[in-house]
Computed example of a mutant assay.
Amino acid sequence: MRNGRLKLIVAGLVSSVALLGTTVLAGPAHADPTPAGPLVGVKADDGATVVSTEWNQAENYLIMNIASPAVGQTLPVALLLPQGWTPDTTKKWPTIMMLPGGGGDTYLTWAGATDLRSVAKPWNVIVICPEAGPKGTYTNYFNGGKGGPPQWETFHTQEVRQIVEKAFHGNGQRAVAGLSAGGYGSMIYAARNPGMFKYAASYSGLTSIRLPAVQWAVYYEAGDKDPSARFGVPLVNAKNWQTHDPSYMAKYLKGTGLFVSSGMTGFPSNVSTLGWTPDQTIEAATYLVNQDFVLQLRLNRVPVTTDFYPLGEHAWAEWNVELKKSWPLMMNAIGATQN
């Protein structure tokens, strides 16, 4: 493939994130206030605090709002709760965090755009669907080397995790999965926090940013007012880019179960819903970077389960299929049992 064509495709990988679906789970029509218990007011170690909750007991899901020092905002998180969950139970459950993509995805999109709720219902597991910002951001910002907010990695891996385990009965056996930008998030979180997650899954995720063309595409298409704020300037701040690159950090994924999938061409499959457009080159580009990531895993003798399918768009219909393929693997890794 000519280098110019590769750059065009890679640029499309970032700029076409708007293709992600925006169907969401509607808020509860008859939400029950959460019963009195250790919910509102619970804090993470850095002071992140649950300021409000809304529990739909009939549907068994809860939405909590967390005042996050890491991000500097109050952010929502949806929890799909297992049968038998109550605020005051002493029973604990494994957890899985489902990370959304960019382009308008929110903490509700996973449950609204896929069969996540019916897939999870038979299992004794707490499903965590956090907010991740309008671009699907999964890093603590570099900010010229000064750090500081927004710190999305801290929000997800520390604040949300600690609150769920302190007050919502998570047992410390964890998996993480995500699509597109969230697929990047799942792999980089697992790599940067070895041992935190028993399993990580990426569906059409940006799992490698080693190529200069990919780095510059991310730099210019990230959508931040200062394009260097997220990771710094490519080449100039190479070390920070490396430590936020799943392929460079592949060796730290040893011991974590892994699932990586994407379409090879972006052409429609039998479940496709969008119809092919030139923007679907995003899926073909995702396939290319996933090949680099899988190569780095194998060079480091890190086992991985892959599913690269010839036909399939960068779309929720495809990720719904991949969710169902990977779900039993994730549940087995975290010791989740069926009802």
Results as ranks from 00 to 15, higher is better:
residue 2 R to I: 10
residue 4 G to P: 02
residue 6 L to E: 14
residue 11 A to W: 07
residue 25 L to I: 06
residue 28 P to C: 13
residue 31 A to K: 03
residue 35 P to Y: 00
residue 42 V to F: 05
residue 43 K to P: 04
residue 44 A to E: 10
residue 48 A to V: 11
residue 53 T to E: 10
residue 56 N to S: 13
residue 58 A to G: 04
residue 59 E to D: 14
residue 60 N to E: 12
residue 78 A to S: 12
residue 81 L to Y: 00
residue 85 W to V: 09
residue 89 T to S: 08
residue 97 M to Y: 12
residue 104 G to A: 01
residue 104 G to S: 08
residue 114 T to L: 09
residue 135 K to N: 10
residue 136 G to F: 04
residue 136 G to S: 02
residue 138 Y to K: 02
residue 143 N to R: 15
residue 143 N to G: 10
residue 147 G to P: 11
residue 149 P to I: 11
residue 151 Q to S: 06
residue 157 T to Y: 03
residue 162 Q to N: 01
residue 163 I to N: 03
residue 163 I to P: 00
residue 163 I to G: 02
residue 166 K to G: 03
residue 166 K to T: 15
residue 167 A to C: 07
residue 169 H to I: 11
residue 170 G to H: 08
residue 180 S to G: 05
residue 190 A to P: 12
residue 190 A to F: 07
residue 192 R to P: 06
residue 193 N to G: 05
residue 196 M to A: 12
residue 200 A to N: 04
residue 201 A to I: 03
residue 204 S to H: 05
residue 212 P to A: 03
residue 216 W to H: 12
residue 222 A to Y: 08
residue 224 D to G: 02
residue 224 D to Q: 14
residue 230 R to Q: 15
residue 231 F to V: 01
residue 239 K to I: 10
residue 241 W to M: 00
residue 244 H to L: 00
residue 246 P to E: 15
residue 247 S to T: 10
residue 250 A to F: 02
residue 253 L to I: 03
residue 259 F to G: 06
residue 260 V to W: 06
residue 260 V to S: 04
residue 262 S to L: 09
residue 266 G to P: 06
residue 277 T to Y: 08
residue 280 Q to D: 13
residue 282 I to F: 07
residue 288 L to Q: 11
residue 290 N to P: 03
residue 294 V to G: 05
residue 295 L to Y: 00
residue 298 R to W: 06
residue 299 L to D: 09
residue 300 N to M: 04
residue 300 N to K: 10
residue 303 P to M: 11
residue 312 G to H: 11
residue 315 A to V: 04
residue 316 W to C: 06
residue 318 E to A: 10
residue 330 M to N: 01
residue 332 N to C: 06
residue 334 I to G: 05
residue 339 N to I: 11
